[in-house]
Write a protein that binds this DNA or RNA. Structure first.
Lengths: 100, 100
DNA sequence: AATGCTTACGGGTCACGTAATGATT
DNA sequence: AATCATTACGTGACCCGTAAGCATT
């Protein structure tokens, strides 16, 4: 299994919501170039299939992209909930209680 | 949110099952030293709480470790199912149909 | 011409293995 | 003494931003 990173999955979720590389980069504190490269990497790791249609000006989810997005949202949300709960139980409160 | 890596979570799941650094390392194609360091990193990222009691010879889950393990198993399994399904739909079949 | 995704290039960080150390049976 | 987890250290890969390229409006 090609090590799919959580960072890549989160980036996909944001990009699928924004449909804009610049905005996605801004929200994630990255550059559009990095967003592009990371997205390419994820697509390659997932069997080389395109998740987005990039028509140089318009970004759109492909069929595979829509399917993945629909399935990924609850999966990542569930994982995040577990991680958040675990960190909350920790003595040093990991990432402060800023989020949610 | 301190970038918790999927690799760290998978390592935790294996270690929680094996309760042995050497076996865990062997199953993951790593060295015991790396398993130790990676586990330390995860514990640190989760607020500095110990997930295992290491008494130099006996490895045991802490209370926090047991809780995390119970919650993490279905969460990671769900994510893996989504990833596997996505890769299966891909044209280049990502990581061959070896697993399951 | 302007906007926006993409490829090329260096640099810094982190994961990795090897080797040495400490602790327990 | 042997086994097992841990720490120290050097190397290689990967993530990152900057800069240049190409397409579309």
């Amino acid at each position: 299994m090609p090590d799919v990173d959580l960072r890549e999955l989160r980036l996909f979720l944001v990009l699928a919501e924004e449909l804009h590389f610049g905005r996605t980069a801004e929200r994630l504190g990255l550059t559009p170039a990095r967003v592009s490269q990371t997205m390419r990497a994820l697509e390659r790791k997932l069997g080389g299939q395109q998740l987005f249609h990039r028509t140089s000006r318009v970004v759109e989810l492909t069929e595979a992209g829509r399917t993945l997005h629909a399935e990924l949202v609850p999966a990542v949300a569930g994982l995040d909930r577990v991680l958040r709960a675990a960190a909350f139980r920790g003595p040093g409160r990991a990432w402060s209680g800023s989020g949610c």
